[in-house]
Design a protein around this nucleic acid. Sequence first.
DNA 1: TTTGAATAGTTGTATAAACAACTATATGCA
DNA 2: TGCATATAGTTGTTTATACAACTATTCAAA
Lengths: 146, 146
Amino acid sequence: MQNNQFKKGELYSFITGQASTAIARRLQRKLNQAGVNITIEQWSVLYHLWKKHGLSQQELCHATFRDKPSITRLVDNMEKLNLVKRVPSENDRRINLVFLTKQGQKLEEQTMQLADQTLSEALKTVPASKIELCKEVLQIVYDNLK
Amino acid sequence: MQNNQFKKGELYSFITGQASTAIARRLQRKLNQAGVNITIEQWSVLYHLWKKHGLSQQELCHATFRDKPSITRLVDNMEKLNLVKRVPSENDRRINLVFLTKQGQKLEEQTMQLADQTLSEALKTVPASKIELCKEVLQIVYDNLK
DNA sequence: TTTGAATAGTTGTATAAACAACTATATGCA
DNA sequence: TGCATATAGTTGTTTATACAACTATTCAAA
């Protein structure tokens, strides 16, 4: 048999995203308590814009594993909240580049701290070596899914 | 390039559930292609009912990490599709026990096969030992989140 | 026994998601 | 150059979700 023969067990619930949604909800609560009125989905878009300013909506689709309509509406709502701004590309008029506003930039430090905290709490009893291994696996899974 | 910095990012995207939603969407597509017209969320409820018949809505909340209104509406829709049936508990009239219908039971074999396939594809290049480790970590995370 | 707290479930409202179908712009090849 | 095709983004529709506020039932303590 192949070396990836295994008993799947709790992995089925990985399909349904239970661990990640539970962690996400914790971060959401922390954000609300801190008076940051954004959704966790909006945070996930901001996260990629903090890493690289001026992503196209299509690039945001790939980065966040969402489809185009989802990104359209997320960016709609985030523009209303004055977190980001669409700027038509000069080279290609089909493309909207999405830029952070001052307000969107300002959220980075505060919310990344809360995200770190949230992850630390969820992983507090997990040895660091195992966390490293899990990261590797996640990376491989991402590559398989491209 | 420290692989450290790069891998840190992957854990933040774990918060936003990107790997699991991507895998879930693959299973969803397989279900549709096989002519099984249920959502992945409905599948996640069926999964727990296959393991134990007659769960209360509250138990389904804990099992699936969803809140009560979410389960109410999922069960609403699944009752319309004739996949499950609410049966008031005799001991405690506050409780609805949710039971599979014949049709709901019938989906187990076919869809679990597709779920196995989906997981195997996502994990095909991951050594079995690392998968085991990830399962351990997931279990610890679940316990931390209780 | 009564009453207040806890538990189980439902309804209202807003945001987010997937899929299909659409518009607009760019590209490539004959 | 011109037309088919590909790409970027939007709109319509249905389902799912979180949170808050609500009803109904049970439990527990005075």
